[in-house]
Design a protein around this nucleic acid. Sequence first.
DNA 1: GGTAAGATGACCT
DNA 2: GGTCATCTTACCG
Length: 192
Amino acid sequence: MEIQSLPLPSSFYQRNTVIVAQDLLGKCIVRQWNSTVLTGIITETEAYTGDDDPACHAYRGITPRTTPMFGPVGHTYMYFIYGNHYCLNLVARDDNQKAGAVLIRSITPLIGKELMQTLRGNVKDKHLTDGPGKLCQALGLSREHNNSNATTIGSLYITEGITVHKNDIIQTPRIGISKAQDRLWRFVLHNQ
DNA sequence: GGTAAGATGACCT
DNA sequence: GGTCATCTTACCG
């Protein structure tokens, strides 16, 4: 598999959050850590569209925590949840939205799997990066990576990955939320 | 200053 | 597939 090394431009994220969530499937996430690099293919995402989405952190408006979702597109929004876990989001929205972000829920490890296993405490393959908190741990991501620019080469960015066919995308309600479950804004890539 | 709920994961069966 | 540890955030006084 050939992976392009240039980050996706901010114009990729300057579109409706739901569209960007689908298009992020199959893209490659690149984590540069000093001289090492970790990469993986995005296989599961969720869209959170902002002030019209009761399940979105930004629904009630801007707060210290949700500030990144109102900021430049293509930046990260990381938050801490349930006492233990970090989750990685990419800010994406069009001109009609005040806020919005895409939660990265799962990746398939590509490069640096051994280090990911070490960071994860040597859990079994299947559970290495199959959850939003797990992939942050596997990539060594935490609060310090909040609101960083993912459209330029740096410690974290997204590049073109593999070709995805629409037939390979499954749509479901989002996980772990009680509101707006009629919106099928979780996207899963199968055959991965 | 107190409280309730939560975009979860590990472990067990 | 179910249980539970764990603590930040936001909201209400």
